[in-house]
Amino acid sequence: MQQPGDVMYFWVAFVLYLLSFLSFTVYLGFKNKIVTTTAISAMVIGFIFHTIALGIRWVQAGHSPFSNMYEYMSSMAWMAVLLFLIFLWKYKKPIIGSFVSPVPVMLMAAASLMPKQISQQLMPALQSYWFQIHVSMAVLAEGAFAVAFGVSIMYLLRKKLGDKTNIKALPSLELLDDINYRAISIGYPLFTVGALFAGAIWAYNAWGNFWSWDPKETGALIIWLFYTVYLHARYQKGWRGSKAAWMSIIGFIMALASFFGNLVVGGMHAYV
């Protein structure tokens, strides 16, 4: 068994994310420049280490790093951080980090508990380029939903505290709502095309049926129906604000449930 060379980089990234998360928490109370700089630079440097870790793993394994729970969760955290950094750069509101940074930290913590061996031999069913398309897009989508989740919690908190809070740095409700919608608008197409369509086409190539009501497939369908409701309700009925935030939170919890359901339920996605 080959020693995975990425684990050290993974731990460094984890520790830096943790540092960033702590700094962002401090930022809630003390809005000063040193705290902000620490928080953001720890996140950026952590992201670089994380990218290296995934890169090493990709090279060592000879296939994209999605073939077990450790790799998958690490990739998902990577996507959440990437999106967060994009939003940070775009909206220039470091406070978003106070609510979004716990998400990658939790994902990394969960990933760190998983076995980290590299399996160079992909089982035959996974030897398809649809595997790469399907899983990479699903990971990206769930990362985006994770960001929406963090922002939604922030929205509800901001609403509850109103203007009587000491946390002056909280961005406006309108902006939070906008980011929530934005993140879901990024995640939804990826989820539809990647998790559902690419998965269905892959299943057709490997087993002859597009859809077989496997527990994971049903789970994905439920999540898709839920976010579809979100988009229609928002577009037509003007569901914004708290309602939209709650939906985003529930949606991500369902995505997590479907994700960890693997460990319990089995079925076609029980590869790890």
Partner: peptide, 12 residues
């Protein structure tokens, strides 16, 4: 749209 939303929720 209301029906669409209700039906999506029921199917979910």
């Amino acid at each position: 749209f209301k029906l669409a939303i209700i039906l999506l929720i029921i199917l979910g």
